[in-house]
Design a protein around this nucleic acid. Structure first.
Length: 988
RNA sequence: GCCGGAGUGGCGAAAAGGCAAACGCUGCGGUCUUAAAAACCGCUGGGGGCAACCCCUUACGGGUUCGAGUCCCGUCUCCGGCACCA
């Protein structure tokens, strides 16, 4: 009987309609089955629709979802829309359309495309982050953050009311604040007025309105993102020089969770590079705060990771934005410092490629006292110190910090080594004409390594040899001097040996050298040493090592030196251990219309008031005009009827007009999917407890830091306040590789580019489905390459998959066609391939090896053709194999699987069938081909029983004629036998 | 500069330290056909040999091992991230 040909267009739309009508993929609520939550990064719907690149995400997750359903899991596989944000808002302004209308239109198109490729989402759970019933709960979480603070003593968020109680009783005395954070006493708190209390609490709330330095475009009168400022510091659109402005902005206190965000990365199954990127972003470092007193008596606190280098701190540097800059500047330096600070504020905003940038800075005129040795050291201002990290001030240790080293050299500041080089390497150049003729012989006799260059002797030695070396060389010095650099630092003159170990020695030596050389550009010893090429690599190092020139900690092992110094400082009240992070608080304010409104009201008296839970959601007003205002305020600020409110106590207030950036919406959407229509709470407890954490989360690596970090932060906070019972939201994470445009030839060169509308090289799923069908597209998305690898789309690849599906179609429906009854393929072989294929496909799905999964299915199909050729199509194994093939292809090719299932008179639906069970015993080989090697080279192959033991293998190997030919009468030195694999005979 | 990741046929790629190139694409040859398409069969890393076979080959240079695409050291190239974080 001849069947009609495989026609994907007809069968795909037919089954899609049937599945939708039957609600086939509707997920049941929590039940007794094991669950599997497989989630795609929810997309931002744009007017351009999906490309085949996006499908690289949605097809594999759909394979996984379908596989786990067949395995008997209760599977949650939802989809929703990240709908707020700038692109839609800008499009709305341009087309004078309400952004919610655009969002619905774009999302509907995405949904149509997802259905087109047969994605099995439970659309009853579809969510849209810009709908009030969703952002109601974004606002609710905002208010919880606002109303909580982080208590590091218990490593947990606590209600603000509890902080107020503590402040009333103890002030901040028990909170363990860093030295650089101003505390408050119980009395100070008790006598503070409400506004002052608001200011104090702001420093603890997990959502707070604080000052932020931002890029301000004075022509367009708006705040710009870093990406909108060019490398020359000019605004991308207006061309104006961007200024740094300090504006009030809303933040979430991510930094409070820095340690847990770092630590808990150990508990997740994520790609290593994502974990690394998050760790780098958080940037944890341990060290200490050190309190310096200026000569005038002000306290200046720095953060350092190397308290052991404190004795080598020869100057201090403040960020230009540091609050004490003005106070510490002396009258004579005032004009210089003010000019520098002003210039820094315009320059610093631009994300200039900092690398190789010449250091700049100015002296304030003031001095501070080094707490460990009493040395008075100058205080400078320089833009290489950032206000946003640590305390915005540093102690400069130029001998062991690359930036300080460059700065000190440029401005002639002293550089004194205080940490011994771990390799103890040292070098000494004895210059031509300064030494007695016999010195080379003496050095040789004493065993020193040296070379002669133009009459200069360059001697390599160690710090340990420095003393002996100095005494050997000194008598041979006729005039001038030599020096030892790197370790054992010394200057050797004919009459005296001077150690280079203090600022005083530095000054004296530098003066002496300058006089001798008649130069005035060598203010320090290091300035001189850098002029000698042979020393360059030895002058600076930043490794942990044994302290020298460091008073009481001299000679301690490096790690001990650090902890000892911290102990010392703590005992004297001059310092304190501290963990520090590069991570900054999360700036959430956007001065735009299309975002979640921030549920805070500003009272006329300046106090912030939370919107009550009952009044949520605070909805966006429907307005005609979304243009940003000339003042850079949100357009909402101009809508009086929305902004002006009367509070329950009759007071007047104004709504906050900033909205939240979209990362707020995406920080919790994965929770809403478990109970998406709940009007009473974010989601029911039992659904959260059952479904979460997400078992498999899949999306592009471009969200490696921001989204994933913020979502983790919110999860931990919600855990602290008892809303969710888990600490990490995404158990496993995978990143699909990018799909690039097909290669094309330009001027004889093959170029591969990203797909983009502007380059007109986007390939849509619509066009591929139209010509080859959705199942072929799905198969090719899986087969194209390793899941994580970036790869150009190849138009030639899809027909290959289509051919395979055609072969599946024919072998299932025409088992008897073309049978010749010839060929060597046994029923047992077919059975073995059948069970091996089940195991391979299952393994590959779990390992995200979708390319080899498809290859295994192709090989299985090829084996069926061989079996048919051999006349096996009437056997029971054949029937089992055909049915198994249909089940195995169901996840990757759901439409053809369903059609074949129906055409072979099986009951609807294949997607509700169970996954076939592999029998490892039936999958096992009875015979294996082993390799015989002589000296590692393959010389023969033979087939042996799979369970042949070592002795048997050795015997058959030695009987092989070919092996004998290579072994000859040589001695067998070694015999390696790997059962089931090979025998290697080592002769010689 | 620092931190990741990757370099394998003409192409996309496979390969728990154990037969390199599975699977697919392309190309070539063949079967079927009046012909073409489709389908099916064979070949398709390089070199040598009439052949049986032999030698070489996983970016490059070393090393460990009976045995290395896989592990270690160094170099080069490409991709991604960070950007003066004290």
């Amino acid at each position: 009987m001849l069947h009609e040909r495989y026609d994907p267009t007809t069968i795909e739309s037919k089954w899609q309609a049937r599945w939708a009508a039957d609600d086939l993929y509707r997920t049941a609520p929590a039940d007794e089955r094991p669950k599997y939550y497989v989630l795609d990064f929810y997309p931002y719907p744009s007017g351009e629709g999906l490309s085949v690149g996006h499908c690289r995400n949605y097809v594999p997750t759909d394979v996984v979802a379908r596989y786990y359903r067949m395995k008997g899991y209760n599977v949650l596989h939802p989809m929703g829309w990240d709908a707020f944000g700038l692109p839609t808002e800008n499009q709305a302004i341009k087309t004078k359309t309400n952004p919610s209308v655009l969002t619905r239109r774009y999302a509907a198109n995405y949904k149509r495309q997802m259905n087109l490729i047969g994605a099995s989402y439970d659309w009853s759970r579809e969510i849209t982050s810009s709908e009030p019933d969703y952002y109601h709960w974004t606002q609710w979480i905002f208010l919880r953050l606002y109303d909580h603070w982080y208590d590091p003593r218990v490593d947990q968020a606590r209600p603000i009311a509890e902080l107020e109680a503590e402040l009333t009783a103890y002030g901040t005395s028990r909170l363990g604040l860093p030295l650089s954070e101003r505390g408050v006493t119980a009395e100070g708190w008790q006598t503070a007025n409400p506004l002052e209390r608001q200011e104090i609490l702001k420093r603890f709330r997990l959502a707070y309105r604080g000052e932020a330095t931002v890029n301000w475009d004075p022509v367009d009168k708006t705040v710009l993102a870093n990406e909108e400022v060019g490398p020359d510091g000019r605004a991308w659109r207006s061309g104006a020089l961007v200024e740094r402005r300090t504006l009030k902005q809303w933040f979430f206190r991510t930094t409070a969770y820095a340690d847990r965000l770092d630590r808990d990365l150990d508990t997740v199954d994520w790609p290593g590079r994502i974990v690394t990127m998050q760790r780098n972003w958080i940037g944890a470092s341990v060290g200490a705060e050190v309190s310096f007193k200026t000569v005038a008596g002000d306290e200046l606190i720095v953060f350092t990771t190397r308290p052991d280098t404190l004795w080598g701190a020869t100057f201090m540097v403040l960020s230009p934005e540091h609050p004490l800059v003005a106070k510490l500047t002396t009258p004579t330096q005032q004009a210089t410092v003010e000019a520098y600070v002003a210039q820094a504020s315009t320059n610093a905003s631009a994300p200039v490629p900092v690398e190789e940038k010449e250091k700049t800075g100015v002296f304030t005129g003031s001095y501070a006292v080094n707490p460990v040795n009493g040395a008075e050291i100058p205080i400078w201002v320089a833009d290489y110190v950032l206000m946003g990290y640590g305390t915005g001030a540093i102690m400069a240790v130029p001998a062991h910090d690359e930036r300080d080293f460059a700065f000190a050299l440029k401005f002639g500041l002293p550089i004194i080594p205080v940490i011994q080089r771990p390799d103890d390497a040292a070098r000494s150049v004895v210059r031509r004409g300064t030494y007695a003729e016999d010195l080379p012989n003496q050095l040789r006799a004493a065993g020193y390594q040296f070379s002669e260059q133009d009459g200069d002797l360059v001697v390599d030695l160690t710090g340990a040899q420095a003393e002996a070396y100095a005494h050997l060389v000194q008598p041979a010095l006729l005039n001038g001097w030599t020096e030892i650099a790197g370790s054992g630092w010394k200057f050797i003159f004919p009459d005296v040996i001077v150690a280079f170990d203090t600022v005083e020695a530095d000054q004296q030596l530098a003066a002496q050298i300058s006089t001798a050389l008649q130069r005035n550009d060598l203010p320090t010893v290091m300035a001189y040493l850098t002029t000698i090429p042979a020393y360059r690599t030895l002058l600076y190092h930043d490794e942990i090592g044994v302290p020298i020139n460091s008073g009481t900690i001299n000679g301690l092992p490096g790690d001990e030196a650090i902890s000892r110094t911290i102990d010392l400082l703590e005992a004297e009240g001059q310092g304190k251990a501290r963990h520090n992070y590069k991570l900054r608080d999360w700036l959430i304010s956007r001065q735009r219309y299309w975002g979640t409104p921030i549920p805070i009201i500003h009272r006329a008296d300046g106090l912030e008031v939370m919107e009550t839970d009952e009044q949520l959601p605070v909805t966006l007003p429907g307005v005609e005009n979304y243009e940003p205002t000339a003042t850079g305020e949100s357009p909402l600020a101009q809508i009086d009827e929305w902004v002006k409110v009367t509070l329950s106590d009759g007071q007047h207030g104004r709504r906050e007009t900033d909205t939240m950036g979209t990362f707020a919406c995406s920080s919790w959407y994965f929770l809403r999917f478990v109970d998406p229509r709940n009007p009473h709470e974010l989601a029911r407890q039992e659904e959260l407890a059952y479904w979460l954490p997400v078992d498999m989360y899949v999306g592009g690596a471009e969200h490696a830091v921001m989204h994933l970090l913020y979502a983790r932060f919110w999860t931990k906070f919600l855990y602290d306040i008892g809303v969710v019972p888990f600490i990490e939201p995404f158990q496993s994470l995978r990143n699909q590789g990018l799909i690039l445009a097909p290669p094309r030839e330009v001027d004889g060169q093959i170029v591969i580019e990203k797909m983009s509308k502007s380059k007109n090289n986007v390939i849509t799923p619509d066009e591929v489905v139209a010509t080859h069908g959705a199942d072929a597209l799905r198969g090719y998305e899986c087969f194209i390459s390793d899941f994580e690898a970036a790869v150009p789309w190849s138009t030639d690849g899809v027909p290959g998959i289509r051919r395979w599906l055609d072969r599946v179609w024919r072998i299932v429906l025409n088992p008897e066609q073309d049978r010749a009854g010839e060929g060597a393929f046994t029923e047992r072989q077919l059975q073995r391939v059948l069970h091996q294929t089940i195991m391979r496909v299952e393994h590959d799905i779990k390992e995200f090896k979708f390319n080899t999964m498809v290859a295994a299915l192709m090989e299985f199909t090829n084996a069926l053709y061989k079996a048919r050729e051999a006349g096996l199509s009437k056997t029971p194994t054949w029937a089992e194999a055909i049915e198994t093939l249909m089940r195995l292809i169901a996840p990757v090719a759901p439409h053809i699987a369903e059609e074949l299932w129906a055409r072979t008179q099986r009951s609807y639906s294949i997607h509700q069938q169970s996954w076939p069970k592999a029998d490892p015993a039936l999958a096992a080989e009875e015979e294996v081909e082993i390799v015989l090697q002589v000296n590692g080279k393959i010389r023969d192959k033979l087939v042996v029983p799979a369970d042949a033991d070592e002795a048997q293998l050795r015997d058959v190997a030695l009987q092989s004629e070919r092996v004998k030919g290579y072994v000859g009468d040589k001695t067998i030195r070694k015999l390696i036998v790997v059962p089931g694999k090979l025998v290697n005979i080592v002769v010689g």
